[in-house]
Write a protein that binds this DNA or RNA. Structure first.
Length: 914
RNA sequence: GCCGGAGUGGCGGAAUUGGCAGACGCGCGGGAUUCAAAAUCCCGUCCUGGCAACAGGGUGAGGGUUCAAGUCCCUCCUCCGGCACCA
């Protein structure tokens, strides 16, 4: 069905001679203007006047995969291009760059298979992407193109890493400071240089340490926690062959910036959902640390709790299986059970992690601890529902007021002591809670929560006061203190790969670690003949023996370069800074340029980067800010997430999917071509197996880039997830043809004789000014779909006009230009203009021309429409009331009743209340 | 389970933020043009009843506030995205 349409459209372009002279020949028009923009460097951006207002529009740059562009890419790119073109016409100096996030696994895997250097594969893919993007007429300043794999680029990625390495976080000043300013405690100083070095290393924002990491057997790579999905599979390759390993790794202390990252969210204009996701990811929780004395042992267990107020209800404690005190507190008679349990827990981490979330398990250690508020002995259990990586790896369990503890207590028949009378109207629930048969986590009033001997009594208080009173008491008794915990962990920052930025680090034989001299950056990747990873999970760089070993020319000391490379996040953490000053060989960016352009005014990309990329980027930016390298605390002022583009797919009654080439459309019903059974149309992700992938190149070939751009914007709200429909492309294509024919005589190719230098009539002028107004304001609010609707209304109106005023057509061309720039430039030229319209001022609408002279009012009785009247726009309220009541239909509907009240909404309606 | 977003014709989606529900586009039906088709142009198209004028119903379900509710409030259902033993 659609194949037939494709064919006929394509035919027009192959054989234009068969057609009329003046047909809308998008192929040559688009080629012509893309050439023009390139030749004239129309979109080259410079700071010519520092007083000119700037606008920085950024797209999330793509990973240039071998598959080329898919229709999802141009969605965001078109939106930002419309904004860019519009802002230029509004007089802004617009920075609108594009580049490549080009480090990544596929090129490296290809190298392992074929021996082709990843740089070669990458360059080829970048070329494809560039050509494809250029064929869409995007107004990027291509002189600013960046590529994260270019040594001139990653020189500065390495430089930023060096900065992070040489920084510590001063908690008092709440900012990062140079490591040289770190105060060294006297006792450390006294212990010698090695101790000082260790102390410094323990404070650096980047550090090297053994870490439990996830290892993907298929990719032969370490993955960050967040790259391993809940089902235990690796996000990148989908393999479930992921296991835990202990390896030396680079980590970044991002949790130290947790509070700053949290606070910064309040100052940026981002979708609330994304902010919330980041807040959840950071996971701030306020509570207290409390020390419990272990019975019969000279040891204390420190727990973190958000509910210190429930200490009187603590009936047992739990340690994570990995807790260091576990061996010490386990008594001989419980040793076997514990060993078995630990073994089982270790096994579990290799299984699907979803399995873990089921039933609670654990073993008793044989030892008790003393509850500090009442001196009671409570058993210490070992259970894997407590995680070593959060808080202190130990908890006090209050089953009456914590659902997890409650479940555990029920499983192992541990006592449940209710210490709070719940605030509820449900008497049954209240009774069960008080009896320890149900769990209550909400507010209420304390009972059984006093120890007069120790001076603690919170009975009768509510949660807020109880927490405060208890923390004060703990602090006073030196048993604990209020504290804040974050879920955010140190960022695992190294990968065992070749195709990534080398760390500018040297490990010396004496145990010293130093940065590569800034003058020696970039530390370029060595050429390799073998891209296979090393056996023990080492990166392929272990094959580059010459490159690896270094000798200090001054001292003769021998060292080895870092084998790991940086993760793909590194290059994308700061690319928005390099765009500003991409050719600078002295600095990553010049300060005065940075001050002019930053912050990014608008950042558009997919929501899949809601947490990781955006959090990492903000973290780096804040470090750079603290060190004085950038002038803003936050990098991205406004963020917008475009929705995903899906496609239609088909499934049979059994719910199994049917590939699109096996589907037949008969009068809107779908059938299987082979079996003839009816199919249901559904919406699904584009996939090769479903054969419903739409290739942008095909769309550009058959309908042109202008139609492609227009359709992507016309589909629906930018943020919505929506299905691609090729017939919809036909619709916008027809609109462009109609617009074309307003100007051009199809037979001759000359100007349509209807286009004349005449005064427009009032109605036409009104439609024009409504269009200028609506399109402008819709662009500002990203409502591109309704802007296009309005332009369609304009074109429909003009099509009916026998005489078309140039004075009306010209502003329309300008309004159309951001959306479909090629046809707009062409029409602009045909109207006699000689220069590009890219910098022509956006037309101004006049309020007085928007007003209708006569307005139609609906007349309602109790909200139901009974009649409509047309009155002059300036009719007074009294006259409108009179006119409304004079209506025959209204009189008939009133049926003699007297109106109680008449509500007149000017230019809208009249509502008569009876 | 928790957080976030969304439910409107056959379909994608509009609705000045409380003021005529269905703009615009697709699809479909009818007509013009054509030897015929494609393309183009015009008319119609929420549902029900009626030849029609017209009448009644209608924005996931139920209730409420209001002169007036797709829009605000309460209860519930469904779908999508994220998080998930984080103490």
């Amino acid at each position: 069905m659609s194949g037939f349409i494709f064919k006929s459209v394509a035919l027009r372009n192959i054989c234009p001679m068969m057609e009329k002279q003046g047909f809308y020949d998008f192929t040559s028009i688009e080629k012509k203007w893309q050439q023009y923009w390139a030749d004239h460097k129309t979109f080259r951006t410079e700071i010519t006047d520092p007083a000119q207002p700037k606008y920085y529009v950024l797209d999330m740059f793509p990973y240039p995969s071998g598959a080329g562009l898919h229709v999802g890419h141009p969605e965001g790119y078109t939106a930002t291009d419309i904004i860019s073109r519009y802002k230029r016409m509004k007089g802004f100096n617009v920075l609108h760059p594009m580049g490549w996030d080009a480090f990544g696994l596929p090129a490296e895997q290809y190298a392992i298979q074929t021996g082709t250097h990843p740089a070669v594969t990458t360059a080829k893919n970048c070329d494809t992407f560039r050509t494809q993007i250029q064929s869409l007429g995007m107004s990027y300043d291509w002189d600013r193109e960046v590529n994260t794999t270019d040594p001139d680029y990653y020189k500065w990625t390495q430089w930023i890493f060096s900065q992070i390495y040489a920084t510590w976080y001063d908690a008092d000043q709440k900012k990062g400071r140079p490591i040289s300013e770190l105060p060294i405690p006297a006792e450390v100083e006294a212990a010698g240089p090695a101790a000082v070095r260790d102390y410094r290393d323990s404070k650096r924002l980047a550090y090297y340490a053994g870490a439990q990491v996830w290892w993907c057997k298929q990719c032969q790579i370490v993955c960050a926690n967040e790259e391993v999905l809940n089902d235990g599979s690796h996000e990148k390759c989908g393999s479930r062959d992921v296991e835990r390993r202990f390896l030396k790794q680079w980590l970044l202390r991002i949790p130290q910036y947790a509070e700053r990252l949290l606070e910064g969210l309040d100052s940026v204009d981002w979708p609330e959902g994304i902010k919330e996701m980041q807040r959840n990811w950071i996971g701030k929780s306020i509570g207290a640390e409390v020390d419990f004395q272990v019975q019969g042992l000279d040891a204390t267990i420190r727990v973190f709790t958000t509910r210190p107020d429930t200490l009187f209800g603590a009936t047992y404690m739990v340690l994570a299986p990995e807790h260091p005190l576990v061996p010490d507190i386990t008594t001989a008679d419980h040793q076997d059970a514990l060993s078995a349990y630990l073994k089982q827990a270790a096994l579990k981490s290799d299984m699907d992690r979803t399995e873990l979330a089921k039933d609670k398990t654990g073993v008793f250690s044989g030892t008790c601890a003393i509850n500090p508020v009442n001196g009671q002995a409570i058993p210490i259990w070992i259970a894997d529902y407590v995680l070593m990586g959060y808080g202190t790896g130990a908890i006090m369990a209050v089953p009456a007021h914590d659902t997890r503890d409650f479940e555990f207590a029920k499983t192992f028949d541990l006592p449940v002591i209710c210490i709070m009378e719940p605030q509820t109207d449900d008497p049954d629930l209240k009774a069960r809670v008080l009896a320890g048969e149900a769990c209550w986590t909400e507010d209420g009033s304390y009972i059984r929560s006093a120890n007069p001997d120790e001076g603690l009594d919170i009975n009768g208080l509510n949660k807020q006061d109880g927490v405060a009173r208890t923390i004060a008491w703990l602090q006073n008794k030196n048993l604990g203190h209020g504290t804040t915990n974050y879920r955010l962990r140190d960022w695992l920052f190294s990968r065992q790969r070749y195709w990534g930025e080398p760390f500018p680090i040297i490990h010396w034989e004496d145990g010293d670690v130093t940065l590569v001299d800034e003058a020696d950056l970039p530390l370029a990747l060595p050429k390799l003949s073998n891209y296979q990873p090393g056996e023990g999970g080492e990166s392929p760089l272990s094959n580059a023996t010459d490159w690896l070993s270094v000798t200090d020319p001054a001292t003769g000391r021998k060292g080895r370069r870092e084998l790991n490379t940086m993760p793909q996040w590194a290059g994308s953490c700061w690319y928005y800074l390099r765009y500003m000053d991409p050719k600078n060989s002295e600095q990553g960016w010049a300060s005065d340029i940075e001050k002019y352009w930053m912050p990014v005014d608008l950042y558009v990309g997919g929501a899949e980067h809601a947490v990781l990329h955006l959090l990492y980027s903000r973290f780096w930016h804040k470090v750079l800010y603290d060190l004085g390298h950038v002038s803003t605390d936050e990098p991205f002022q406004k963020l917008f997430n475009q929705g995903m583009i899906l496609a239609y797919a088909y499934e049979d009654d059994a719910g199994s999917k049917v590939a699109s080439d096996l589907v037949e459309n008969r009068d809107g019903q779908f059938f299987h071509t082979d079996t003839g059974q009816p199919l249901k149309q559904i919406v699904a992700k584009m996939s090769k197996t479903l054969k419903n992938v739409v290739n942008p190149d095909d769309v550009v070939r058959d309908y042109g880039a202008d139609s492609m751009r227009l359709y992507e914007m016309f589909m629906g709200p930018l943020e919505a997830t929506k299905p691609w429909n090729t017939q919809g492309v036909e619709g916008v294509y027809r609109f462009l043809q109609k617009a074309w024919r307003l100007f051009v005589h199809e037979e001759t190719g000359g100007m349509n004789e209807a286009v004349q230098d005449v005064e427009p009539d009032e109605a036409t002028l009104r439609v024009l000014h409504q269009t200028i107004k609506k399109v402008g304001s819709d662009i500002e609010t990203f409502s591109f779909n309704t802007a296009i609707s309005q332009m369609m209304i304009f074109v429909n109106h003009m099509t009916k006009q026998k005489v078309r005023s140039k004075a009306v057509l010209k502003p329309f061309v300008l309004v159309l230009a951001p959306f479909s720039p090629h046809i707009a430039e062409e029409l602009w030229q045909r109207l006699g203009e000689t220069d590009t319209l890219a910098y022509t001022p956006w037309p101004v609408y006049e309020e007085r021309l928007l007003q209708e002279k006569e307005i139609e009012l609906a007349i309602q009785i109790r909200g139901k429409i009974k009649d409509k009247i047309v009155v002059p726009a300036d009719t007074s309220e009294q006259d409108i009331q009179a006119r409304a009541l004079a209506s025959d239909k209204v009189q008939a509907a009133l049926n003699g009743q007297t109106p109680k009240k008449i509500i007149v909404i000017k230019s809208r309606l009249v509502n008569i209340v009876v």
